[in-house]
Design a binder for these strands. Sequence first.
RNA 1: GCUCGGGUGGUGAAAUUGGUAGACACGCAAGACUUAAAAUCUUGUUCGCCUUAAAGCGAGUGCGGGUUCGAUUCCCGCCCCGAGUACCA
Length: 929
Amino acid sequence: MDYQHKAIEEKWQKFWADNHTFRVDNTSEKPKYYILDMFPYPSGAGLHVGHPLGYIASDIFARYKRLKGFNVLHPMGYDSFGLPAEQYAIQTGQHPAVTTAANIERYREQLDNIGFSFDWEREVRTSDPAFYKWTQWIFTQLFDAWYNKANDRAEPIATLIAHVETNGSNGLLAVSDEDTAIFTAAQWASFSEEQQQRELLKYRLAYLRESTVNWCPALGTVLANDEVVNGVSERGGYPVVQKKMMQWSMRITAYAERLLNGLDTVDWPDPLVEMQRNWIGKSIGASVRFTVPSLGDDQYIEVFTTRVDTIYGVNALVLAPENELVNQLTTPGQRAEVDAYVAQTKKKSELDRMADVKAVSGAFTGCYVVHPLTAKTIPIWIADYVLAGYGTGAVMAVPSGDQRDYLFSTHFGLPIIPISDAQQLDGQADATKEGRYINSGIINGLTYLEAVDVLVAELESIGAGKATINYRMRDAIFGRQRYWGEPVPVYFKDGLPQLIEEGELPLILPEVDKYLPTESGEPPLGRAKGWKYRDTFEYELSTMPGWAGSSWYWYRYMDAHNAGEFASREAVNYWKAVDLYIGGSEHATGHLLYSRFWNKFLKDMGYVPEEEPFKKLINQGMIQGRSNFVYRVLDAEGKGTNTFVSHGLKDQYATVALHVDVNIVSNDTLDLDSFRQFRPDFVDADFILENGKYHCGHEVEKMSKSKYNVVNPDDIIEQYGADTLRMYEMFLGPLEQSKPWNTNGIEGVYKFLRKLWRLFHDGQGNFSVSDESSSKAELKALHKIIKKVEEDIERFSFNTSVSAFMICVNELTDLKCNKRGILHDLCIVLHPYAPHITEELWTLLGNEPGKLSYATYPAFNPDYLVESEFAYPISVNGKMRMNLPLSLSLEPADVEQAVLANEDVQRYLEGKSIRKVIVVKGRIVNIVV
RNA sequence: GCUCGGGUGGUGAAAUUGGUAGACACGCAAGACUUAAAAUCUUGUUCGCCUUAAAGCGAGUGCGGGUUCGAUUCCCGCCCCGAGUACCA
């Protein structure tokens, strides 16, 4: 029998499922290893060949780790709440739960076809109430917690209450809103319950606050900062505007420093670490207060600066047009101008504002501040180059040291004061920190390093400023005005949010008649009939954002069916953290940051043991589409004819390029019969061929239906089998690299598997192996691959292993090797890559079915690779000339002698004098003449 | 603009510590088997020159320079492509 991939793969997939081969226990004598994939959102389109790339890599790694004696946790699940299902529900009226379940079923079928070794008994779905019960529970924990800066950790809100009851707000070091009250213990006691709760809300890690949010009118919801890309929504690309709204938020900023420091302890790709650093955006500087006498002597504007040393060069204070103070600052005389400018800014979308970086604009408020060190008056301006969302939404303008301030000042004719003797102000600002200060009061003559300390000390002593660290990262908005998400487990009593009792979780997502906002503009949950807490209190009508479930799901896999806890203490302490996480880099600032945040919180509360959840992380590259084109010949009027010209001849005609389904193209050659059936109007298409073939053009684009370049793994598996698909996806190139999918070349992998099959079979297709002992050459081929695969997998270089397997099988074929001992070990080594065929062959060898997954990876013996001779490359002046086989026992001096004595070598040296001979034992000989 | 990747045959790529550049595949060409096709196998395939052939010569890892006996690999400058980010004070 030939290699029958279909029968073999169906047989073993069924066997694995029936025998629970990949069921894993939470206890074991073996060391544990946790391999996690980023779980998919089950979209209606199903999987294309790009999706499983990372799953194949992680599956190879998981299977390899099992062979290496590890107890491996390798689960899979679905991130099944999300916008697309809801948009589909709005269009079709179908419940998102129904379409989601159907999509999951389809995904599961496709995943099963590939032969993954997931423990499906641990599957999770974020939209399952048994799962989101614990997402809601974590929310309640966050609500009931505050961040104590004194201990640098989150604590239960009870410790905060205890503090204020005895000390008031005195000595409280907490991360909080800015408008917290100052009170004594007695005052606290005198507060009404409502006042106390209002105050506590300013400290809770999950809190409700009026904040400026990214509102997306088209989606009818707010979006987190990471869901807004270039001023439009990440999903759908709809415009986003800033709007003030009462919103649930997560105090992730409390963890900014720990999120930053933790990056030094994880083994992640550099670009990803860099992206998180930038997102957190730590800058060290100073905050400075400028008093505003016209508003009163105790009124001030605070600015943040990283260059406090330039403070004597300030010529204006510039506020963001959105800054809340603008209205009160503006004098009657400037009112019209300022209002016009504010209105004009509001009209500009964020996109326009970014595109318009070069154009300088602004308006004078008519108001002045006092410089804290010189007591000079300084005008207050507004300009859109100052962002409301960063720092305090106000800057001190120093035109000599900052290019934006320079352009602003020259445009409006404000004075430019040089502040350093090293500054070169020829038409632009000079941000140098070199030289010594001039025109700078108390720091005249000092260097940069000296000046900063002097200034900060002075500002602190007069109460006008202090050293400050500023973060770009904002607290994360945690509510969405949408239906298909976890309900927030909160009801309102007297306008104050209250948690639902833990025993009453989960708060089930109610049914609604339509998935649209109510007539009064409430979120869809406002449509739920009779949906009230204890039939009395209004529930929160927002749902949680998409990232809620994915911020802790890896713990649920550890103990997926636990009804009493998110995961048992034993399970969490056994599996601890994810050892290897594989997924796309598109989650760099969203999922991976929120997950680390929740993990740190859960650790602070004593629920999990590790500070960082993902020890090692690999980003698989994106698989792009590779489109094929046919060229339709145009007639004299420029209209399309029914004639198509091959790519190489298209320049001789007027043509228009059309996408053609890549599945009817093989090695860029079009299948003409399939093409005639591709579209009805192609039925009697004519072709202008090259050498009897129609060659298509090609281009790399996004993989999408409209470009006819989507390749479904099911089709590949039907034709070549899952083992071929797995190996070919790896063979395509380095895992981390993005590359277009091209089915050209898959034949090579398929041929390899058939060649492997033939090693075990005679010419008639009968199973035939020999029990004779193995030859030296056979053992060498085997042990080369044992070593190579081990090294390759450990450094995630899966593509090079596939080549090595091909070399190995080619060598064994040349040796006509059918020795049981060699083939037995080869099955184990290849098994992670091609699990089905190796299970079959391993069973044919007489082993117990199914035990291959837990076999022992063969031990590498270097003795089999030892050579007595080496064909030394002989180069002359660094140019390789010939090979000369010599014994490896020869020392460099003997090698030199042997080489120079050789006739063929002498031919290259004729008439030249030898200056030097370099001999690297076992490597190379280089003769310098 | 800044940050990080990357640039090697017709194509995907390999070269792990500075040591034979192009392994392994695809494609292509020629051949064997076959009535034929498929499958399989064999040979060739970086480019240029020379040659009936064997062989030989020269160039070659984006470009220019440097270090070294020796550079795809290290250093300096430049060009191009991709990703991220962008008025962050």
